[in-house]
Design a binder for these strands. Structure first.
Lengths: 230, 230
DNA sequence: GTCTATAACCGGATAGAC
DNA sequence: GTCTATCCGGTTATAGAC
């Protein structure tokens, strides 16, 4: 209580230094790219010692992790109003996906590095890793809501997996987007529209009696995929 | 002609040194992992100067590229006898995929590094990059043969894309395998069996009149995917 | 063109003093 | 929490030998 008056508490000051380093890093990353930004440059521009930067971020890659968490929050926030507003499944999915791309857009070049790091199975940034559980779960819940809040009906067994399935689908779109060099990520937006169309069609088809064996096979496979992923 | 008797030609000797360095590197990578293997250690064990290692491989990552090309050749070689022997589509696909996993198996931990590098859109190792065109095309042709040599019939429009589609499918399996820590990659083999089943089912379904609109949508999307990929 | 030897540069990471 | 000094390894440079 007493430190509030004169100075910020140690924890707060620590958090501020941390934030300062992170902001500076993100700035420099945007300005000249990840590889070209040295830890020394970050420390210098932030006005702290090199060792201090490492005190707050165990490695250069951990700066990416912090960035990732922030982007994830922005993503969830961008999806919220859409899910509160729309009721048609196609619209819900399309708009959430478009919002995802739009949110990531400013970090396009930088995301390639994020992705490269994330591709390492040993990395905590890997979207399939235990360390990513929290963020992954949030995304899955969000995509589950895309279906839950819509006026579409679909088979119960499939319904249960839709959050995970759409999350997987969204990962594929992100993968494409990272490789997409078209202006304004135009190709990715087009792909979102095309695949959104297909997803909705597939969902409608899935209830057809003719599809039962295939659906059962697919669900079995999905349970294999998820095994050990908690 | 004259140098054949006494000594190996210059080119041959160079190739031998190159091979020696590569073998040594692969050995050390297997033994203690990629990160833990220093270029100095590779040069020392190979009995060459550090500079010489860099003379043949522009960077440490280029050693991975060389490894990748070798694995690719092994993959193609492993598939050949299967394609010459089997006629049933399911068997052709399943056995080629199992052979793929079996071929990669010895390099499991090492492949994670390969994959991490390959995930960078700017990397020549990226499977979607222009530099990978040759290897990618070979793979696609191979998967096209899986269908071509089988006794299955499928719609012409879909038929034309099957090589690419199965290659994409195979990339997904590889992605799963990289994350698979189960003994002997048991989970990946199970996934191959399950997904193989599904692929064959899908192919059979694809010809159904009810499927025409979905198939057309999907093919349109695929042409988007391939655009700019040569 | 192939190779050696050696030193140096650079930047990520760590140790330990304050 | 913050700093300085140092390590380590990928990479480059140089100068010369076969």
């Amino acid at each position: 209580m007493e430190e509030t008056g004169l100075a910020l508490s140690k924890t707060t000051r620590g958090a501020q230094t941390r934030a300062l380093i992170l902001e500076t890093a993100l700035e420099l990353f945007k300005e000249r790219g990840y590889e070209q930004t040295t830890m020394r440059a970050i420390a210098e521009k932030a006005g702290v010692a090199l060792g201090n930067a490492y005190y707050y971020f165990k490695s250069k890659e951990h700066l990416i992790q912090a960035f990732y968490l922030r982007m994830h929050d922005e993503l969830v926030a961008a999806a919220r109003p859409i899910l509160d507003r729309e009721t048609d499944l196609r619209e819900r999915l399309l708009q959430v996906m478009r919002a995802t791309v739009a949110t990531m857009e400013p970090y396009h070049q930088f995301s390639a590095v994020l992705f490269k790091t994330a591709a390492d199975p040993a990395s905590p940034l890997n979207p399939f890793s235990p360390e990513s559980y929290e963020a992954r779960q949030q995304s899955i819940v969000l995509f589950d809501e895309v279906v839950a809040g819509s006026n579409s009906r679909l088979p119960k067994d499939l319904r249960a997996e839709m959050g995970y399935l759409l999350w997987l689908y969204h990962m594929g779109i992100v993968l494409f987007w990272i490789h997409d060099q078209s202006p304004g990520s135009a190709r990715t937006y087009r792909l979102v529209d095309r695949t959104g169309e297909i997803v909705v069609r597939l969902i409608k088809l899935a209830g057809h009696p003719l599809m039962r064996p295939l659906r059962k096979s697919a669900l079995l496979m999905i349970s294999d995929l998820k095994e050990d992923m908690q």
